[in-house]
Design a binder for these strands. Structure first.
Length: 473
RNA sequence: GGUCCCGUCGUCUAGCGGCCUAGGACGCUGGCCUCUCAAGCCGGUAACGCCAGUUCAAAUCUGGUCGGGACUGCCA
């Protein structure tokens, strides 16, 4: 049997990292089993669904690298894969269920239903005990599924193992609203049947709805898919992942300069692992061994710090050419203008050293800023801590003399010219190189000094050291 | 309130009766390296929620308890 899995986002917001992770696990399962990964849009909530959210979600999924084989935007055997296009089908199913006696029309109003729920809570019982087929049958209003009371609903969840629900605790839930539109339960279940979905891996929040979906599937005369309920994602404080924890949308991370392969890797480690030892792994490695049955039961806390560390691992591992291409827009946005050809050459010269020091792409811009704009002032603390020390004027004077005498302007010759200074002047290395660093880059933290000077160019470097010397009087 | 799910370092996890004086990763931290910062290397910190039971032996099995979470809509 071919594995067919799906992700079914609702376009009522941007793609949440939790939804992205569920999509990721589905994708991994499909790839591992040479199955089909389907993308469907669950847009039955017409009030909140928008085309903008839908395209944002599709972009984010593509960015993460989860190519779908069937579904929205692709020619498939099931139409548009957008639920709003299939209302006729859902109505047909709902009415057939009524015809067969498995469902019924309910025209009780919200007030009456609220009263029943309140009574249930007061008496410590489940609302299902009260929301049942009313006495004389009605033939208008919403359609509810009638829950058979004969046996418990039991299923073997791939991650939870055996789960069981008593029918008395399952309410006769609405499948078709009184305006003829389907509820999530109906649309989702009908689609899973029609699209021949074999495995449903989704968030644990849907575990309590699963017996409803199973009963619905069975009353349609089909066998339910295998379920796998994934643990939920939380913030570092153990609370539900929300805006308070910072970014919750995949696109937020994309914009912050995270790499898709790092986000992919990190998300995969939340609730699953390649093996006992490996933290950094590729898509291919994950695909090779992934199994829903190995997913953890515990909820996971999303830790931006660990993601950032992991991103740095990926930044350092990429080719210099790719780093340069990816970093360029961030450098330009730091400067607020595009780089010209000469500036680009200077950047390329020092880029490998910047790459080693970058965890998030935007950091690259800050590190090379001194190369492309005049020092708009020294970092105050750096100046105070470094430049006001004794001996600094002599260090700068000596360095200027040595550098002026250089025949060429390469990092190696600059180093040769300056390397011996500390010993010659009887000073510690930091006493010599830190003042030069501050003079040249404006800060006590920068890429390596000699390479920075080489990339900056002879005239600018000497100009900056002379200027700093003047400032000291 | 009711139903269901979950419970190993601060966090992500390994562990599926003896290999556990509990392993790896992030974080934090001591040191080395070193022109600063990173990176790298060596070391440290820190966990089986609790109580019973089963067993020669329990983080691993059972029961209870406590704690956390989800759901409880004509939202998804």
């Amino acid at each position: 049997m071919t594995v067919r899995v799906r992700m079914a986002p609702s376009p009522t917001g941007t793609l949440h990292v939790g939804t992205a992770r569920a999509a990721l696990f589905n994708w991994l399962y499909a790839r591992h089993n040479q199955g089909t990964f389907i993308l469907r849009i669950d847009d039955t909530d017409e009030e909140r669904s928008t085309a903008e959210f839908e395209s944002e979600i599709l972009d984010s999924i593509r960015w993460l690298g989860l190519q779908w084989d069937e579904g929205v935007g692709l020619d498939g055997p099931h139409g548009t894969y957008r639920q709003s296009d299939r209302y006729g089908r859902y109505q047909e199913v709902a009415e057939a269920l009524v015809g067969g006696g498995a469902a019924y029309y309910d025209d009780r109003g919200p007030e009456e239903l609220d009263e029943l729920r309140a009574r249930a809570q007061k008496e410590g019982r489940h609302p299902a005990h009260y929301i049942r087929r009313p006495d004389p049958p009605f033939y208008s209003g919403a359609i509810r599924l009638s829950i058979p009371q004969d046996a418990p609903v039991v299923f073997d969840d791939l991650v939870r193992d055996r789960v069981s629900f008593e029918p008395a605790d399952i309410d006769d839930f609405v499948i078709l609203r009184s305006d003829g539109r389907p509820t999530y339960h109906l649309a989702s279940t009908v689609d899973d049947v029609d699209y021949e979905i074999t495995h449903v891996a989704r968030g644990e929040d849907l575990l309590p709805s699963t017996p409803k979906h199973i009963l619905l599937t069975r009353s349609m005369g089909h066998v339910e898919p295998v379920y796998a309920h994934l643990p939920l994602l939380f913030g570092r404080d153990g609370r539900k992942l929300s805006k308070r924890h910072g970014a919750t949308s995949l696109s937020d991370y994309r914009e912050a300069g995270f790499l898709p392969e790092a986000v992919f890797n990190y998300l995969a480690t939340l609730g699953w692992g390649l093996d006992a030892e490996t933290t950094i792994f590729s898509r291919e490695q994950a695909v090779a061994v992934f199994d829903l049955a190995n997913v953890s039961k515990n909820p996971a806390a999303f830790d931006p710090e660990k993601l950032t560390w992991m991103n740095g691992e990926y930044v350092r591992a990429m080719s210099p050419a790719r780093f340069n291409t990816l970093a360029r827009p961030y450098v330009e946005s730091t400067l607020g203008r595009p780089l010209d050809g000469d500036e680009w050459a200077r950047f390329e010269k020092i880029a490998p050293l910047v790459q080693d020091r970058t965890r998030l792409l935007p950091e690259a811009g800050e590190q090379v800023r001194f190369l492309f704009s005049d020092l708009d002032g020294y970092h105050h603390d750096s100046w105070e801590k470094v430049m006001t020390k004794e001996g600094v004027p002599q260090v700068l004077d000596t360095a200027i003399a040595r550098l002026e005498a250089l025949a060429d302007w390469e990092a190696e010759s600059i180093e040769t010219a300056l390397r011996g200074l500390p010993a010659e002047m009887g000073l510690g290395t930091a006493k010599v190189f830190q003042p030069l660093r501050v003079a040249v880059t404006g800060s006590s933290v920068s890429p390596p000094l000699f390479e920075s000077m080489a990339a900056l160019g002879r005239d600018r470097t000497l100009g900056r050291i002379r200027y700093a010397r003047q400032e000291l009087g």
